Simulated assay, not measured.
Amino acid sequence: MDCDKVLQNFENLYLNWNPGLFRYREDIHFPWDLTSGRGVAGCFVKNPQFSVSTRGGHHGDGDDAPDGAVEHEEPGFISIYIFNTEGKRVSLSDGALHRGPYVDSPNTLMRLEMHPNTTYTAVISEQSLPSLNQNFTLSALSTAPVQIAPAQNKYKYVTKVQGHGLNPQFTMKVSSATDVSLLLECPETETATHIKLFWSNGNRVARVRSRDIITDSGDYRRGGCLAEKRTLDEGIYTIVCSTFAPDQLGRFTLWISSSYPCKVDPLAPEAAGRRASISDIGILPPGSDRMLAPLRVPRLTRIKLIARSRQSLIGNHPLGRRRSEDGHHSDAISGVRVSDFDLQSGLENQGGVWIVLERIGGPGGQVEDHFEVEALSEERVDIGEWIVEDA
């Protein structure tokens, strides 16, 4: 058969290699139930993972071969990731030592050069494989003995919390000093997430101050984000999960891994047990930096105020703005707050009580800002119309 007929009758052409070139072979067979164990892109917490260890001499190739349960005609791709993590499980796809291409063939090959007495972690990854219980074989062919075994967890204790909500927070009680890992997994592909651990005695965090942050996950990331802390002392801490865009709701799974047991409980939402009253949108036009609205209550009540930016316009470019919080200014995405205070009724004859919003740092008075204020209180609260003060 000449080359033209080969191209006419076959879709793919593979150049094979001779496994007889290697003196040693180690195989491990395993199932992967993709009906329930499919992970989120970029998050490897549910993926099959194995330690690959050398004992001496020079080492060569390894390959990952799904068996006949994966038909060639079925869509889907597989790949191998290699991590230098001493055979321990990894949580995210970041930081791989080697990463193979995703291929739609029944097997894929990863070539490695391993020094004697070295242990790597091999992670099997897939994209768009059918949601079936798939069977795989991971084989190591080498010039010296190699051992393959399921990768072990780095941490002894793992707690999993599933939920659905807006920027949830959790209290974490640590009874003994421990290493801890916080992994936030979100299946919403367009949702970028972040996680922080705070010194807050287990209380809800409303204001982010750098001195209160113990560790965080860095930049916002789609799929999942990871924060780790070595030797976290005994105490009660607060875990804060957030999304890059404000007011995003979504499903999530929080994995708390530690060397010693930790007790994790969800914190009640900020508005729990209170009436929520939301003002109309107040607009600060270009050239004005201060507006106010009257605040009235029918009787003595305890109240908290939260101001949030809803939109900032300067041409087609969105801008972050700054608002006043207890006399100070802030550009926090989550809004700024006036903590609980008691407000009595009947003050209108004395000039009334007013909510005042200010902004600073505007670029030449070109920005139009849209704000709203939420009042959380024990009784009904009335927030009047916004009045813009002249510049």
Results as ranks from 00 to 15, higher is better:
Arg89Asn: 03
Ile82Leu: 10
Thr85Trp: 03
Tyr102Ser: 06
Gly87Arg: 00
Thr119Asn: 07
Val90Glu: 02
Pro101Cys: 04
Ala122Pro: 03
Gly87Met: 03
Ala96Trp: 10
Thr85Val: 11
Asn107Ile: 04
Thr108Ile: 03
Lys88Pro: 00
Pro101Arg: 13
Phe83Trp: 04
Glu86Phe: 07
His98Asn: 13
Tyr102Pro: 00
Ser93Ala: 15
Thr119Ile: 07
Leu92Val: 10
Val103Thr: 08
Glu113Phe: 11
Thr85Phe: 04
Glu113Ile: 11
Arg89His: 03
Thr118Trp: 13
His98Phe: 15
Ser91Glu: 14
Tyr102Val: 10
Thr119Val: 11
Ser105Pro: 03
Val103Ile: 11
Arg99Cys: 07
Pro101Asn: 14
Asp94Tyr: 10
Tyr81Glu: 06
Asn117Cys: 08
Met110Asp: 00
Asn117Leu: 09
Ala96Thr: 12
Ser93His: 05
Tyr81Thr: 02
Glu113Tyr: 13
Arg99His: 09
Phe83His: 03
Asn107Tyr: 12
Tyr81Pro: 00
Pro106Val: 07
Ser105Met: 08
Leu97Cys: 09
Leu112Asp: 00
Leu112Arg: 00
Leu92Pro: 05
Leu92Phe: 10
Val103Asn: 01
Asn84Val: 01
Asp94Trp: 09
Thr121Lys: 04
Tyr102Phe: 15
Pro106Tyr: 04
Gly95Ile: 07
His115Trp: 09
Ala122Asn: 03
Asp104Gln: 06
Leu97Phe: 15
Ala96Asn: 08
Ser105Phe: 12
Met110Ile: 09
His98Glu: 14
Leu112Phe: 04
Glu86Asn: 15
Asn84Phe: 04
Tyr120Gln: 05
Arg99Gln: 15
Asn117Lys: 13
Met114Gln: 13
Arg89Trp: 00
Ser93Arg: 06
Leu97Lys: 13
Ile82Asp: 01
Arg89Gly: 00
Gly87Ser: 08
Val103Glu: 02
Gly87Val: 03
Arg99Tyr: 03
His115Gln: 15
Gly87Asn: 03
Val103Pro: 01
Ala122Trp: 02
Thr85Gly: 02
Leu112Met: 09
Gly95Lys: 09
Asp104Cys: 07
Ser105Glu: 09
Asp104Tyr: 04
